[in-house]
Amino acid sequence: MSSSAPLLDIQNLQTHFGTIDGVVRAVEGVSFSINAGETVAVVGESGCGKSVTAMSILRLIATPPGKIAGKILFKGTNLLELSEPEMQAIRGNDISMIFQEPMTSLNPVLTVGRQIGETVMLHEGLSAKDAEQRAIEMLTLVGIPAPARRVREYPHQLSGGMRQRVMIAMALACSPQLLVADEPTTALDVTIQAQILELMRDLKTRVGAAIMLITHDLGVVAEMAQRVVVMYAGRKVEEGSVEEIFLNPLHPYTRGLMGSMPKLGSSLHETGRSKLTEIQGQVPSLRKPIIGCAFAGRCPNVTDVCRQMAPAIEEKAPKHLVACHYAPRAAAAA
């Protein structure tokens, strides 16, 4: 495998769920890649399919009712073709995941040490004693005081921030190459959020893992990511470097997201442009196929073309992909 091949390459991912009222197309033809050591943010509002994309990568979607199609190449191997035992060997070892809810994502009846140690016992064949030692090391690494005592404690004895640190310790225990973080800071206090982000950035450089960061917080994106994938209604609508996305958003939805983010120094009472803008309208139902552009119903610049024809995703500026009929093409683009 050449060194330039991406660590993770998602091609035309489709995750559908069969329900009583029909098929819900949670993810519809999403493609993007993540290089080794890179942090890619996946942003979008609730229900846009970002978490489902993450869960599809680790095949955590129950099938049925779920159905995953497309290709998920991890170091050249299509994860969707692996057997369940082969997948188990990858989960928590090569690819691990941090979840949104630290309060409910840890098992309440097993000690913290047991939960961290289990990963290394499974993947590295460590004895229970060595696993506990590793757990203590990991707790030290994520900055939990008195790790030798904490390792014997249960999740309910820890605060939310501490629990998320434990989740991170658990995810990093086997030094994964890819860390999928599904809104890791959403459930935390703002001060704790900053600490957790700082910790993730610090550990990323130490472990050398690539991060797929799922969030709806653009502040987090700016702080953590190198590249951004914007998702809307199960589709990728824009992709580019952080600078490109923030300074030159081309898709009307991305512009809307930027406009709905409060900026430091602006006041809600000021008149004119510094007011928070909202994106009008509703996300389309994912139960029926969407004809035309998924964003057409809410787009300020919508035309008849948008309503009838889905825009292809095109490179409108170097390494800046957009799915919009009217996104201006930069002169330098191929």
Partner: peptide, 14 residues
Amino acid sequence: QDYVRTAKAKGVGQ
């Protein structure tokens, strides 16, 4: 529960 999903994500067997 979420923690069952966490266990699965760690590679724990069924």
